[in-house]
Design a protein around this nucleic acid. Sequence first.
DNA 1: TAGATTCGTGCAATCGATTACATGAAAGTT
DNA 2: AACTTTCATGTAATCGATTGCACGAATCTA
Lengths: 346, 346
Amino acid sequence: MKEKVTIYDIAKALNITAATVSRALNNNPKISEATRTLVIETAKKMNYEQNRFALALKSGKSNNVGVVVPFINRNFFSSIIRGIEEELYPKGYHVIICQTHEDTKKEEETVQNLLNAQVDGILMSVSKTTQQLRHFKKVLKSNTPLVFFDRIKEIDGVSTVTIDDFQGGYIATKHLIDMGCTRIAHATVDLALDIYKYRFEGYKEALNDHGIPFKEEYIIKTKSDIDAGEKAIKKLMKLKNAPDAIFSASDFAALGAIQELTKLGVKVPNEFAVVGFSNEPFTQFMELSITTVDQSPVEMGKMAARVFLEQMKEPTLKIMKKVELSPELIVRKSSSSLTAKQQTNI
Amino acid sequence: MKEKVTIYDIAKALNITAATVSRALNNNPKISEATRTLVIETAKKMNYEQNRFALALKSGKSNNVGVVVPFINRNFFSSIIRGIEEELYPKGYHVIICQTHEDTKKEEETVQNLLNAQVDGILMSVSKTTQQLRHFKKVLKSNTPLVFFDRIKEIDGVSTVTIDDFQGGYIATKHLIDMGCTRIAHATVDLALDIYKYRFEGYKEALNDHGIPFKEEYIIKTKSDIDAGEKAIKKLMKLKNAPDAIFSASDFAALGAIQELTKLGVKVPNEFAVVGFSNEPFTQFMELSITTVDQSPVEMGKMAARVFLEQMKEPTLKIMKKVELSPELIVRKSSSSLTAKQQTNI
DNA sequence: TAGATTCGTGCAATCGATTACATGAAAGTT
DNA sequence: AACTTTCATGTAATCGATTGCACGAATCTA
């Protein structure tokens, strides 16, 4: 039906060759001003659109980038993707979304797949289960820019965009200390993942800086869900010297903690303060809104995209950049009866 | 560096022509069994990967589909995309994500863009502001399958996947009636959008079926945010005959309503019941969890993908399918003190 | 004015895969 | 034995855009 207009059609219409048309459209300086404008005008008139595949075939560049995340329908990741899309779309790139379901196998397969699709770059957050780095090496070998965000692996030649999880853990903990808490527990998730390791270390450093002894019994390794938070509190409140606050590396666990504390009759925040991590949307909507650490995911996505673009500008150079965004503590009711009133007007 | 292996390389290695290799790899029946297996084996050995661009250029098919939504970092949309991706990835399609920011201009531009990129199909949810349908007609003219989900426009030849918003409005309202409410208000958003119109009509029908007179003063047109919900309650509670329940077409407005009610000292759900719509994640996490209507967005995404695949299977046929998923009422505390206890264990 | 530059354009190969048509060998038919 | 089929493979065009090289005309140089 709809015949696509090609440069040959334009050439025929103007009685010149396709080569001239191509050059005119690409602002090749060897073309006379007269024919250039003529070509450009007729191109517009004929509704010419460059065929991306022909271009891709010739150049090897697709103008697509692959974005790989565990799940797209997690606020944190979808916000990152939003940032990436908003940064890359105006530059003519299309964003291809893939999910790994936290499964290394699928991750490897997906990466290989994107490579076959000759994406111009891959931006990704590594699956929890990933140990093997072979598939990333393949990406580098194929000269495709690779940018990790949030969940990274240290690989030579790979740029990374993270938030400063250490600082995040530090400010969260310091805030609890400032609020007068002295027996601060910490719920972590998986210390094999850098993000949790650094949050934990920030926690320890804050304690240390304020002369509060670190207690192993206050550290609970949980999953990142509500149930885990409840269990953590159950365990913690049985201790002889039960804590008076918890910094949870997960908002969901923080929520579970609050629910369990309420069930036990412990008043939050007066008797027990809670701080989460991630600024999941629900934390602000709760009646007892939850203090948490914001990771500015949209900004993180934009930054990852910018790092990629920078690499594309210098295809000959091997750029390796490490960007660390600053986390922001968002104080809400779960940790501060004082500010509770200020925070009421959402 | 990394030289890509082509069928010519394989051909050279086996001292045959590329045509034979191509045919062997495509299971063309004219190729002898011997050479076929030989070719396939060496292809594997040489790590051959088909060049998607060459294929795309020749066939005009990209194996990409475009997905267009207002914002990707909205739980509803990101969940739909998750469904789409999970359904399409195994079939070899890549999903290209685009956002319209609820802006018709950007929507038109995006659609045009996807068309240029020769996607094999476009799945989208229409922007709120879209009136003009020209860009959709263009899609149809180019013979690209178009599937609308959730926010649709009635266009001949376009398949749609929606939930039965009428039924959603109906069961939400009926639930309130069953709970003993008799003065049920309704907060809607934009009656120009079908989804809200149908929810409203379901509401009216439910009232009607149960002999409850419809009152214009109980209908509030708001935006879909917390603030809007608060304002709605302020207005409603000033009425001489104030309502005892509200069915909000937006979860956010429902939340705002609850907050305002609490501020006014009205007990939810005992004195006033609230039902929202969409099953946003926060509705279940609230201390006073919110009754809402679930739209099974992942399922909706999968369905949209399946409708697309069906169309691809029959390229000659013009398939126009209308799928309507059933919404599900999720009863939580905000409307039912009885079930409140059952719902405690999340 | 002859020869050297410069300029604008055309020619043709290339990117990698597919496919209608041609070809030649083997097998079958009478 | 001569002829027709069948079968497997090769030849070459095609998809659309890019680009090094060639070429003729116009302009410049001495």
